[in-house]
Design a protein around this nucleic acid. Structure first.
Lengths: 206, 206
DNA sequence: CTTTGTGAAGCTATTCACAGCG
DNA sequence: CGCTGTGAATAGCTTCACAAAG
């Protein structure tokens, strides 16, 4: 079986790909593992091993070819494979702030949902907004794979369970709730309070 | 030397504390490690070991005392130690959406910054808004420890470097930039695109 | 001489298995 | 019995040290 890349390595490679994108236009062609170390803080050993998982020849005496490396990561991690359809669930302050967010080429918001019809009528977006009742239909019809969850914490688990039932494959969780969904869906937590507490706990220990 | 809790364990405990807070009012006193397993997906072994690091007696035959456990986590991770002052840097769509966010008791936003004076004058918030030029003064004077970074990606690294120079101890990075700051500051990344790509890469491999 | 790529070692985290306690 | 707590075993990740290549 094809050797699967470990989770930490995958996460670093995803970040690395974005980093490379940013420096792509700096008119440099190559980057070395120790330069990446300086930019990211990861050790050059780790970076070299991560890249070696890609099984691609994109290195020379001068380091890695920036564009080639970026493409290799994209290919291996399936980042560049077409456009994934997403929806925003919950259009309060946070959800509606994401309406104009730049999602790049690989992800496209095709729907927004809110329990308040008032909300869906007042807001304007480059994609249609629906009341929550239509989630199932729209998700099925559009073939939406990913959901960005920005509802109030109290209803987050309920909505997440529904989304998983409707065939959503991944949920980006902006709420402070800890979600459990079945095997079929993946949850990625993006909690501001979590992040603050991680930082605080590190300071407390040292 | 005091045995330090590993990073993964710390992150789980932080989430666990919040989970316990949510179920605190469900009129139950105890919870078992296998119930936590069902709610979170972490194995009961791991949960028991995590809790054992707290060196607290909060268990009985019926499981863990919910309130006692929550407090023990808070104490060990320094989550409950007073109020930490935070600021929001960058008051665009995303930054200003965080103005009304509920930060709980432990974190308090005491300032917002934006490079556009226009922006700081138009917006209203329960804390003062300043032009970026005043960052250093305000951070020093107020004793602000944490920053929430929501500026455009292109200037993120510059601003982060400045913040670290001004004595900020932790940055929650909402931008898509990969930041490197010195040893003194900690960065926690909260990138929507990162989250989407993590999910996508998992689907690609399985 | 510099930089990658990688077996081997070292370290960290998770899981197993079971003793101990209520 | 069911539950926690924990040594011991296992698995997973990172670092080291160095061979190979430009």
């Amino acid at each position: 079986m094809k050797q699967t890349i470990s989770k930490p390595a995958r996460e670093r490679l995803i970040q690395l790909a974005r980093l490379l994108e940013h420096i792509e236009n700096d008119s440099r062609q190559f980057i070395t593992s120790s330069e990446i170390q300086n930019l990211t803080g990861w050790s050059s050993y780790t970076i070299r091993r991560d890249i070696s998982h890609l099984k691609t020849e994109c290195s020379t005496k001068a380091g890695y070819d920036i564009v080639l490396l970026k493409n290799a990561i994209g290919a291996e991690l399936g980042i560049t494979e077409g456009v994934k359809k997403c929806c925003i669930v919950g259009l309060g302050k946070l959800g509606s702030a994401l309406i104009d967010f730049d999602f790049g080429k690989s992800y496209k918001i095709v729907a927004g949902f809110d329990s308040s019809v008032n909300r869906t009528e007042i807001l304007t977006a480059p994609f249609p907004l629906y009341p929550t009742g239509q989630m199932q239909n729209v998700i099925k019809q559009e073939g939406i794979e990913l959901a960005i969850l920005a509802v109030p914490g109290k209803v987050a688990q309920d909505v997440a369970t529904k989304l998983a039932g409707f065939g959503i494959k991944g949920i980006v969780n902006y709420t402070s709730a800890i979600l459990s969904v079945g095997e079929d869906a993946i949850v990625e937590n993006i909690s501001l309070i979590d992040a603050l507490q991680k930082i605080a706990s590190l300071h407390a220990k040292n």
